[in-house]
């Protein structure tokens, strides 16, 4: 399974994702410069975390106009997989590949922490290796991670089982106390209706290395690989 990781000026988690896909998972991985427009060799496009173009205007607002993003939209429309992490999630909403928006955290501060996340759906390759309702711990690091969408969009997301990850208590309780950034419906990650595009604020690539301890994130990547192997077999 070949990963393509898009590199914008200001991306800063690009090498972290490449380390996981290339070194830990031993998968072919290519860095894709934002001016490139050919993604034909790529199976999974990853839009990594960081501050694309400095994010001075609005997170992801400029990145969406890049050549690589246009190619990503084509890739997604062909059913190809797209994973947006943190700034990548913001870019996916700006590009219209995912609904809603990410706004300033409720307390207005950047938050870097490890938080409990409840896996809400396991019917897709992204989450198939987790248990339904499993509470995992993932690192977060963002200033604008508060998920916002209008009421109708939210009810569609719920109805279509597009909310894959929610902030929760360690016991799985979904409430306001266990919501680090004020996201509506405690949303930490969603997919599109077809399920081939995932955007999430937590960083699974930061919980994928045995040397560093936490390993709840690598399961996402492993699930993706197994689904593909199964599909080929």
């Amino acid at each position: 399974m070949k990963f393509g990781i898009i590199v914008f000026p200001g991306s800063n988690c690009d090498r972290d994702v490449a380390y996981v896909t290339r070194e830990i998972l031993q998968q072919p991985t290519r860095m894709v410069w934002h001016q490139d427009s050919d993604l034909s060799d790529i199976d999974v496009v990853v839009i990594p975390g960081g501050f694309s173009y400095g994010d001075y205007l609005r997170c992801g607002a400029i990145a969406r106009f890049s050549s690589a993003m246009k190619a990503t939209i084509d890739h997604a429309n062909r059913g190809g997989k797209v994973l947006g992490i943190c700034n990548g999630f913001q870019i996916l909403t700006e590009a219209g590949l995912l609904p809603g928006a990410l706004v300033r955290n409720r307390d207005l501060h950047f938050i870097c922490d490890r938080v409990p996340i409840k896996v809400e759906q396991t019917h897709l390759p992204w989450t198939q290796k987790y248990r339904q309702g499993q509470v995992i711990t993932l690192p977060i690091a963002h200033g604008e991670g508060c998920y916002y969408a209008d009421a109708q969009t939210l009810s569609e997301l719920e109805a279509n089982r597009q909310i894959l990850f929610r902030y929760s208590s360690p016991e799985g309780v979904i409430d306001d106390i266990n919501n680090p950034n004020g996201s509506l419906n405690n949303i930490a990650g969603i997919c599109n209706q077809a399920g081939n595009i995932l955007g999430l604020m937590p960083h699974p690539e930061r919980a994928s290395d045995p040397v560093l301890g936490d390993l709840d994130g690598v399961i996402l990547f492993q699930g993706l690989l197994e689904a593909t192997v199964a599909a080929i077999a």
């Binding site: 988690c13 090498r15 972290d16 996981v20 938050i111 870097c112 690091a141 960083h203 690539e205 930061r206």
Partner: peptide, 8 residues
Amino acid sequence: QYDHQVQN
């Protein structure tokens, strides 16, 4: 408030 985990 500091990203203390970037670079993995």
